[in-house]
Each structure stands twice: as structure tokens, then as C-alpha cells.
Amino acid sequence: MLMMIREIIAAVFVAGGVFFFLVSVIGLIRLPDIYMRVHATAKGDTLGLGLALVGAMVYLGFSFTSLKLLLIIAFIWITSPTAAHLIGKSAYRSGVQAACGSIPVKDISERKNQT
């Protein structure tokens, strides 16, 4: 009985992770330019992979393997944003145009009067 409850919780987590991965793939196909696609893929890595691995951790219980899974989450959460940042930065530096709807000009939102 207890095992079944744990399996159900694990399945819910993994299903949530798969859902977020699905959304990120839909975003990858739907979105028009590189800057927006970076958001879609980085998103799948953070919560999609995080939820899937948390599901695996729940399924395995308290063991060395689940500790290693936690470490995998930690490292993915470090490396994936780094990759997203570098892709965005290199695209910006080499002058990749954003899609026609989104403007490549910066908005400067400095509210100096408050300081």
C-alpha cells in the first residue's frame, strides 16, 4: 500500500516533468526567433527535468542514487542557464535580428527619480 502511494506520487512528478518538456518543445517549434526559443528550451531543463528527477528520487526513496539525482538537478540548474545565457549573448553580439514583432532596440527602464 505504502509502495503504491509512493509510486503514484512519483508518477505524478514524472508526468509533470514530461508535461513541461512537451510545452518547451511546442515553444521551440512555435516561437519565431532565437531569443525566444532560448527561453523555451531553458524552461524545459529547469522544471521539466527537475520534476522528472524528483519523481525518480521519490520512487527510489532515501538512497545514494537519489542523492546523486539531486546532484544532477543541481548541476543541470547551473549549466543549462549558462548555456542559455551564452547562446543569447553570442546571438546578440553577432547581431542576429529578432523576429519582426519583437524589436531589437533596447528599452531603457531606469527609474532614477526613486534613488
Binding site: M36, H39, G101, K106, I108, E110
Partner: peptide
């Protein structure tokens, strides 16, 4: 990403 009438007004800000 899932909404059908997406108003994704992406852009840059600096602060």
C-alpha cells in the same frame, strides 16, 4: 506558450 492568441511581445531591457 500554450495560449492560442499569444501576445508574446519579447524584447530587451537594460537597467
Amino acid at each position: 506558450l500554450l495560449s492560442s492568441q499569444s501576445k508574446l511581445d519579447s524584447g530587451f531591457v537594460s537597467f
